[in-house]
């Protein structure tokens, strides 16, 4: 990572098959630049895929687009108790109808094996793979902010 300056990429993708893979290319580029490590890069890519397909399928986005912001930054100082911590943060934003994350039930494999509907894993995967996840959702859309520390 050549400098400590924040680095940011903005990307808008259409709601279309496999466009989530285009988003993962940005994760790879920034993750390699900040020396995040192969496994952590793959975890962020997986979380981004899930956030994108959630937006594609459930948001009801009016303009059929999803906006993403990828940012590498550092919080804290080297002399702080926790030291300086560099992270990759990805925002995934849609302008759909929003949802209440508290009303999304946690899926269980035992129930899913016998249920006709086997999906609904996206948020659980995102929360498990990322270090910090915030969801801001309302009638103007949803923003999922996901952070992974180096």
């Amino acid at each position: 990572m050549p400098t400590a300056e924040p680095r940011e990429i903005h990307l808008t993708i259409p709601v279309a098959p496999e466009m989530e893979i285009a988003a993962t290319a940005q994760v790879a580029a920034l993750g390699e630049w900040m020396e995040l490590g192969r496994d952590k890069i793959d975890e962020v890519k997986m979380a981004v895929v899930e956030a994108c397909i959630n937006a594609f399928e459930h948001s009801g986005t009016l303009d059929h687009k999803v906006e993403l912001k990828f940012r590498v930054a550092t919080e804290g100082e080297a002399g702080d108790a926790g030291g300086a911590r560099t992270f990759l943060e990805v925002d995934v934003l849609d302008n759909g109808h929003g949802f209440d994350p508290a009303r999304v039930s946690a899926p269980q494999i035992g129930e899913k094996l016998r249920a006709p509907h086997k999906r609904g894993w996206g948020l659980r995967i995102i929360r498990s793979l990322m270090d910090d996840v915030r969801i801001v959702s309302g009638e103007r859309g949803t923003m999922i902010v996901m952070r992974k520390y180096r």
Partner: peptide, 9 residues
């Protein structure tokens, strides 16, 4: 190298 939750379902 990559999967998504729809495929895993």
């Amino acid at each position: 190298k990559i999967v998504n939750s729809i495929g895993i379902s």
